[in-house]
Design a binder for these strands. Structure first.
Length: 329
DNA sequence: GAAAATCTCATCGGTTCCCC
DNA sequence: GGGGAACCGATGAGATTTTC
């Protein structure tokens, strides 16, 4: 059912139907009522593709996520999709994969789909290849990056100070009496490097030298988190606390400690990052750095909508993380 | 003369400007 | 108040031109 069909049935032109659909003035009340009744009767719904041809707007935004299997990525997509949906925007969510090639390909897909705006989830999009792709294909639409930033005129970033947050985790460990600490970063992203920097600064403030620090890298899986904790215990049996760059590995690490009858937190304390749902379903419950994923997602959606409506915002907005203490510290 | 390359135009479903 | 027509951009069908 198109406006032409409605127009034919109503005995008016398509332009008259279009005016009624868009609540434009200049239509006799009687005609408006008749057309509205027909729209209702035939359950008319406008063809957004056709609208997009004229308005040069698709009412669709793109959300790029590196790996949608991660719980906190799903959460971010959920909140953004829901928030943008309230403003009448439909979300196209793409799982880009790890490599630059795939991320660039995803940017091209969004450009082909003529999305009105884009949200990039995570600092892993902070690469030269992605920057070039955005500049080439999506320079005319607003792009919001969560937990990262690219220096382009149409890009804005919502960042969380995870460096300071992890530094505070080191301080919490000290207050709780845990001196010998290890840090496990999830991968070599800008965000995880920032967390590592927080660990280094926190430890240096306590008199440790950079080369003395126990820093590891571990993929974000249950198996790898478990194996990583075993390795740390093997390398440093006297370890008193471990800070993981994300929650999933930290939860596995607690399991590895419990399996060895090592008391958490009395003998080894554990802290994660993300403050995800995993924190409450393990025993003891995991202390975690709340990097404010929900607020960051909502803020990204708000800034994107502002940009689409022509309202200005700063290029970068910084949110501050805070520790949520549970039983593992 | 046949095949390939190139060009032209209608089509889709809306919106909006101009005019009666 | 309301109709007609141009227009949006990609696509494909058909017409025309070029090449071998």
């Amino acid at each position: 059912m198109t406006i032409y069909d409605i127009a034919r049935i109503a005995g008016v032109s398509a332009s008259t139907v279009s005016r009624v659909v868009n609540n434009k003035p200049g239509i006799k009340e009687e005609t408006r009522k008749q057309i509205l009744a027909l729209l209702e009767q035939y359950d008319y719904s406008p063809n957004e593709t056709a609208r997009g041809l004229v308005n040069k707007a698709s009412r669709m935004i793109g959300i790029l996520i590196e790996d949608i299997r991660y719980a906190h990525h799903v959460d971010i997509a959920y909140y953004i999709e829901e928030e943008m949906g309230k403003h009448g925007y439909c979300s196209l969510i793409l799982n880009t994969g790890l490599t630059d090639d795939k991320k660039v390909e995803a940017v091209k897909v969004l450009a082909q789909r003529r999305v009105d705006g884009v949200i990039l989830v995570g600092s892993t999009f902070e690469t030269e290849a992605v920057k070039r792709a955005l500049d080439a294909g999506l320079s005319a639409v607003p792009v919001i990056m969560t937990n990262g930033y690219l220096n382009l005129p149409n890009v804005k970033g919502v960042l969380v100070d995870e460096r300071e947050g992890v530094e505070n985790c080191v301080e919490l460990m000290r207050v709780k009496g845990h001196e010998k600490l290890a840090f496990v970063r999830p991968s070599h992203t800008k965000s995880s490097l920032s967390k590592e920097q927080g660990f280094v600064q926190g430890m240096e403030r306590r008199g440790f030298k950079r080369e003395e620090l126990w820093i590891y890298e571990c993929p974000t899986t249950l198996e790898d988190g478990y194996a990583m904790m075993e390795r740390i215990l093997e390398d440093h049996p006297d370890v008193e606390g471990v800070i993981f760059g994300e929650d999933l590995s930290a939860v596995s690490a607690i399991r590895a400690l419990v399996d060895r009858n090592i008391k958490v937190p009395e003998q080894v304390a554990v802290i994660g990052v993300d403050n995800s749902k995993y924190c409450d379903i393990c025993y003891p419950k995991l202390t975690s750095l709340n990097n404010r994923m929900v607020e960051m997602s909502l803020e990204a959606a708000r800034i994107l909508f502002d940009s689409l409506e022509g309202r200005e915002n700063p290029d970068r907005i910084m949110l501050f993380s805070r520790i949520v203490e549970r039983e593992s510290t």
